[in-house]
Design a protein around this nucleic acid. Structure first.
Lengths: 228, 228
DNA sequence: ATAATTAGTGATCAAGCGATAAACAATTCG
DNA sequence: CGAATTGTTTATCGCTTGATCACTAATTAT
């Protein structure tokens, strides 16, 4: 039972931080932590990563669940960008360019291991915030895309998207989303050029939209990069 | 400290089952249980659902982890059907029919809350079996689909799929997969007619494949159900 | 400088976890 | 029948968990 002689208790110089900074640091690191470990991860492990003791967490958050809720809030709101709706609706530019730029920026925002994992975990829990987010994608993004596609195809843009239009847009959107899952969750080998993937997916979707829902949508295809 | 008088201990008639039946019942119910609760769910809660006591689980499985592994095995292998490769390769039928029938059957097998949730949970854990499954989809399904599309488009079917072809097929496949996620995980309102969703997704994919990778793939489109 | 305030720590509690061992009871065998 | 076997339960162990409280020490106010 010989204890190593330590002249003074080897405490690593207790540093006090302003409450606001601490809070932000806690939420940020907790996001990374829960993204990796799942929300079953222990508060002691989390505290160790933060370089503080476990009870300190409870000075800033009444319970683990409150901390988790704050993680959700920041993760879900972080990537939302108000410029996107305007970008999609800007008819002075070709629809293909707008869609390419939008999905380029959107995936840049959400295609991180952290975001995707938190998103999946919260989805499996069936949380309200997840349902809310899915509604936002449908109403702010897909509905807008369908309207622009209709306009491009010379169709009426007054009526709400039909169920079939919406579903087809979801399949397209989900296909792109799944690229992120494959890359950052499954860690599969994917086509490294994300822009090319979006471009190809867009070609397929735009070509298909015309054939399925109306007269052909005329858009110039992006040049196909060396294939084969 | 008055204990309710119970003439005999109210035990619900201990029933003995043959070990093999018990095992199967345990695995089946454990699958449902873990699908809902996640693999953090407790063995006591699981046992309660099974109508047995918790230690009994340990007569059939050395540890909780072993039980979980068996859950994975059955869930992943359950839906795999050897007839699918032949179905996809049967060139006596139009490619569109084959793809429609394949995805109809495939989604019938995996679009259950149970299967999808176990799949997502195991994916988040980064398990080997998940990587293996993704490889199977790529090599047995998508590669085959691409070959058939090439054949239909009059292209060479010798060489391996290009990265771009594979990626486009993944986007298509992932889009359909995401329909299941939306319906059974997010519990969103989706287009109820799954066959129609597959049909539309196929129209888009097949029309797009021709435009993106070669001369147009000529296939008769499925009749569009009342739209609008 | 001293007092008041508050960020941070050490010790600990009650509850829940996976797992084990011994007792019990339903079945099977001689 | 009685004995042996084995499926099932009761009781419990050691550990981890989220959470609390009294205390220490760094900062701020007087």
């Amino acid at each position: 039972m010989s204890r190593k002689a330590s002249p003074r208790p080897v405490r690593v110089k207790q540093k006090r931080l302003a409450p606001d900074d601490r809070r932000k640091e806690f939420v940020a690191k907790a996001t990374e932590f829960f993204a990796e470990e799942g929300f079953g991860g222990g508060t002691r492990d989390l505290a160790r990563r933060l370089g503080v003791t476990q009870p300190l967490l409870y000075r800033y958050f009444p319970s683990k669940d409150d901390l988790i809720k704050e993680v959700y809030r920041t993760v879900y709101l972080e990537p939302l960008n108000n410029g996107w709706e305007k970008l999609l609706a800007d008819r002075s530019r070709p629809i293909r360019d707008r869609l390419q730029e939008f999905y380029s920026a959107y995936t840049e925002a959400i295609f991180t291991r952290k975001w995707l994992r938190i998103y999946l975990y919260s989805g499996l829990k069936g949380l309200d915030i997840n349902r809310w987010y899915v509604g936002v994608v449908r109403d702010k993004i897909l509905t807008r895309i369908i309207r622009e596609c209709r306009h491009e195809a010379g169709l009426s843009v007054q009526s709400k998207p039909t169920a079939a239009e919406l579903e087809t847009a979801w399949v397209f959107h989900g296909g792109i989303f799944y690229y992120g899952i494959r890359k950052y969750i499954y860690e599969s080998v994917v086509l490294e050029d994300k822009e090319q993937m979006i471009s190809d997916a867009l070609d397929v979707y735009l070509a298909g939209f015309g054939r399925v829902f109306g007269t052909a949508v005329r858009t110039q295809r992006a040049p196909v990069k060396a294939v084969g």
